[in-house]
């Protein structure tokens, strides 16, 4: 019998705690497949965020450090600067990266830290129970914006990929989406390229992944992917915003 599809070697054989339809599982798997394909499992150190994905280390079979809230890029900097031979990546949600950790991500990118950041943007706080994120769309209802996000009260959602792409320091900044198989395949390509840039010692890299949170969006998994497609893609255009080769 020929095995044509199996669990990546970099993942443990265990069920996840994620809700049905949540795209964290897909994102984890893409990272694990890339780690396998690049043969870097034995020298990879992940930095976990605070949020739903804090338990990522229960699923990924590599060394891991659990960062404090939003500071994963700083801790990743400490790891990479003390052990440049390691492959270091952070995996962060939108509250962790774009709100409490806004300073750390901007400065890690601006220093050109040779780390990779996987940024899960699902436009809501997951673990704390569906509160507004800095990436929550205008008008989007959450438990702390019950009448919908009012941009006059709280401003517009932050587009992190665009923001980081304005930095002069070379970097690889991409936004992908996990709402259908085609885009998932594209997302994997981006994640792989991001790790390759790190392995080449070239640049800081961040892949933003538009993701779903059916539980806190109050939708079925299918409705959630449709909502992402119809609403998030307009506000958060996909694409490569910056490469190390740019002038």
């Amino acid at each position: 019998m020929v095995t044509i599809f199996t669990r990546p070697d970099s993942m443990f054989d265990t069920p996840t705690h994620y809700c049905p339809g949540c795209t964290h599982g897909v994102a984890h798997r893409l990272v694990a497949e890339v780690i396998d394909e690049l043969g870097i499992k034995d020298k990879t150190v992940g930095v976990a965020p605070v949020g739903c994905a804090v338990l990522i280390y229960n699923y990924m079979n590599t060394d891991f450090v659990e960062g404090s809230h939003g500071r994963a890029p700083a801790s990743a900097t400490g790891i990479k600067r003390s052990r440049p031979d390691l492959v270091v990546y952070t995996y962060q949600g939108d509250g962790d990266l774009a709100s409490i950790g806004a300073a750390e991500i901007v400065h890690a990118a601006n220093r050109g830290e040779k780390i990779t950041v996987v940024f899960i943007n699902n436009a809501i706080y997951g673990m704390t129970g569906g509160q507004m994120a800095p990436t929550t769309l205008p008008g989007q209802k959450t438990t702390t914006s019950p009448k919908g996000r009012d941009v006059n009260h709280i401003g517009y959602p932050i587009r992190m990929a665009e923001l980081l792409a304005t930095l002069k320091t070379p970097g690889y900044i991409v936004r992908s989406s996990l709402h259908d198989p085609y885009h998932i395949a594209m997302a994997k390509k981006a994640i792989k390229q991001a790790f390759i840039y790190q392995l080449e010692g070239k640049a800081f890299s961040m892949v933003e992944l538009l993701s779903t949170c059916p539980t806190n969006w109050g939708m079925t998994p299918y409705q959630a992917t449709q909502w992402l497609k119809e609403n998030m893609l307009q506000y958060y255009p996909l694409g490569v915003f910056k490469t190390p080769e740019d002038e």
């Binding site: 150190v45 930095v47 960062g67 500071r71 400490g78």
Partner: peptide, 13 residues
Amino acid sequence: VAASNMLFGAAAT
């Protein structure tokens, strides 16, 4: 805040 978390990262290795 960042310096101490860099400290943490380096110490973790």
